[in-house]
Design a protein around this nucleic acid. Structure first.
Lengths: 339, 339
DNA sequence: TTGTAGGCGTTATCAA
DNA sequence: TTGATAACGCCTACAA
């Protein structure tokens, strides 16, 4: 079968203990022996059996990410970039990345988390799509499992995390559009239980207030953060007797759907109607018209989350327990009048 | 610490062996005892320690997917949908999904595969983005590790796989466009070492031949299968003295970039210029204009690959060793003249 | 039907 | 500096 330390020990006429220590870089082993062992190991193509090591060390050397997705087929560019970041960063550490998928309901998701914890499959978790009240936070905190997350849930638990300054960013968009002369603001959000929604919608309201504009509740609706959802809701908004002249969206996907609906309605986006996204997904750069958005470095955020988690797991000191990311406003054609 | 069978045994005053067998559904255990054990296990929140089980069984109960990506940040919708399919299907089996990322060069990628194999991290692999000559196929075949793949590489090794009828599908597009009156055909491909490229470009040529059109090599170029790549190449094509009136792309991403370039050039897509994608990524439905494409059920394919792999690992008989998927032509505005 | 015991490959604790 | 040896938690002959 596979090569074990036993094979190396036999070949070198050493004890397995000596081999093990030589490979793990302990100091109580002669330099010469170490060299011989390392050489032999390399020649024989040895690499330690993961399960045995894990069993003994009581560590999985793996981190887990459970994608919280509603529909089986709801895979957006955000996810792709996020996973890509997780994958690249974990590869730099001595960790594996374990991935699964569970709808954010209580059943499957809870079972999955509990199972991974109890069977010690992973040493820690990466979380995103935080909910206002998030049982994952409660659970992992109580069971003392390390985790890092994108966004802070409102469970009054302080965990290592990356935060995006959603609120001010969204407010900035409102202010900018006001200066451009737009007046009737609509907002298309997502699930109200999401922190992301709360923060961005909050920023929208804050922006309106700052600009002295009164909020018309009829001009806001929540979708599912997909292109299709944005399209559907925009269709309604654009057929109102007094339609909005600016539609701010919780994310780029939604905004891309809005663009489509506007085209069909024959509304000139950038002139008669301003549309903004959020998150800076690549497609927005090439849409017609191109999409004004608040860019968020999703890939980088994912990497930071892994780095932080690795520190937590190793019990290293974390220089920054909270990393705040400021979105960057990217002005493109969909808000027009940009000279 | 965590709950083990020992704890259950102690509580129920049984031997650990009895508990183990009861949980694993062996027949040589009394129904009553089994019930007691199962009940206690559930109450105590037991789930077996993964490392211990793996070590004993010499099985990882995990499948691996190593994302072959060039750029650290190259995450496309294809990947998102693919991973989503892998994740959902593995969740239905008693398997974990281990994910990592490696550029398709020899170095990192080879080390990673070897490491996962040698340390027995996974019981099998899912492959995609097959290359014409693919060392992964050679290696896994030789080491006798189960794997399934999307596309057949040209290594003369017959493995369980899903194949997409790329060639005929692409040829169909050419034929269709010819009927619509388009005449000067350009093709934007990807990496020439990819099976996908070979097959789709081959289909393009086949289609031309069928229609009696001569191929102008100046009207073909290879990009990197991203929106940006498509955009860049289309810019060149559209400024030729005799520009094409139809641009067929290896994938939707490329085609979306072409749309953008056409807009900027002031070319009316659907009338003066036909553009087609391939793969049926969701964004194409909402682009402006919407994109004609060959839809491929990526999500389903991923699930099939996992199912097949599971069979292979369990040494079950595979009813179909090769599943062929026929893309579905979806006609939208980008090829116009559709009544 | 149940219990005993050995071992999977490592690592860690002792002695030597 | 090295070598025995005992776990880690689970599974499975074999014995009872």
């Amino acid at each position: 079968m596979s090569i074990t330390i036993r094979d190396i020990a036999k070949k070198l006429d050493l004890s397995i203990a000596a081999v093990s220590r030589a490979l793990d870089g302990y100091s109580d082993i002669s330099g010469e022996t170490r060299q011989r062992v390392i050489k032999a190991a390399a020649e024989m193509g040895y690499s330690p059996n993961r399960s045995a090591r894990q069993l003994r060390r009581k560590k999985a050397d793996a981190i887990g990410y459970i994608l919280p997705t509603e529909e089986p087929r709801f895979a957006d560019p955000f996810v792709a970039e996020f996973i890509s970041g997780l994958g690249n960063e974990t590869a730099l550490h001595p960790f594996d990345l374990l991935i699964s998928i569970a709808p954010p309901g209580l059943d499957t998701e809870q079972t999955l988390y509990r199972n991974w914890v109890q069977s010690q499959k992973v040493d820690g978790f990466i979380l995103n799509r935080m909910r206002v009240k998030d049982w994952r936070v409660q659970y992992l905190y109580e069971t003392n499992i390390p985790f890092t997350a994108l966004e802070l849930s409102l469970d009054s638990i302080d965990y290592p995390r990356v935060e995006v300054d959603n609120e001010n960013a969204m407010a900035s968009l409102v202010k900018y559009l006001t200066k451009q002369g737009f007046q009737r603001f609509a907002f298309i959000g997502g699930d109200e239980n999401l922190i992301k929604h709360k923060a961005r919608f909050g920023g929208f309201l804050k922006g309106l207030e700052y600009c002295g504009i009164e909020w018309e509740s009829g001009l806001s609706a929540n979708g599912d953060m997909t292109i299709a959802g944005g399209y559907r809701i925009a269709q309604k908004l654009l057929y109102l007797k007094a339609p909005p002249d600016a539609i701010l969206c919780i994310n780029d996907e939604t905004a891309l759907g809005v663009l489509r609906a506007a085209h069909e309605r024959g509304v000139e986006v950038g002139k008669q109607l301003a549309v903004t996204g959020f998150e800076g997904v690549i497609a927005g750069r090439y849409s017609e018209p191109s999409l004004t958005t608040m860019d968020i470095p999703i890939y980088e955020i994912a990497r930071i989350l892994v780095k932080m988690l690795a520190c937590e797991i190793m019990h290293d000191v974390l220089d920054e327990r909270v990393v705040v990311v400021k979105p960057e406003m990217i002005l493109r054609q969909s808000t027009g009048r940009m000279g």
